[in-house]
Amino acid sequence: MRVVAGAELPPLAIELTPTVVISTAIATRDFTPVHHDPAIARAQGSADIFLNILTTMGLVERYVSDWAGPSARFRGLKVKLGVPAYAGDTLTFSGTVASVTESETLIEVIGRVSLGPHVTAQATLTPVALG
């Protein structure tokens, strides 16, 4: 199936349990305490432990890749960070196909939490063919 500009990606909601926040921080080899120790996170002025940036990048990739499938290749991923994504919140992704050319497909993604947008991103892919 041909992908057209304006098409929407199915939304994805991820419950940010402490397990998710901590396991992703460790899987990205980020051992900074604010990503796994609530007491330290609060002492530093945060509401709770929160997602690290490497995970935000990873989740955006996963969200786009769930839709684009294994034939597509990522050429780039641009992320603008907004409000923190705290444990206990829900991160909801929505995405739109921003443009399609012969060589590239550009996807715009927003990941929202209750405080507002946590991440706005642009993923550049090779042409996408949906099954």
């Binding site: 991820i14 460790i26 899987a27 294994p70």
Partner: peptide, 16 residues
């Protein structure tokens, strides 16, 4: 090993 740890934590199921 590092890749599978990462894909598991992210919920990434791409067979690549």
């Amino acid at each position: 090993a590092t890749i599978s740890h990462w894909t598991e934590a992210m919920g990434e199921r791409n067979p690549l």
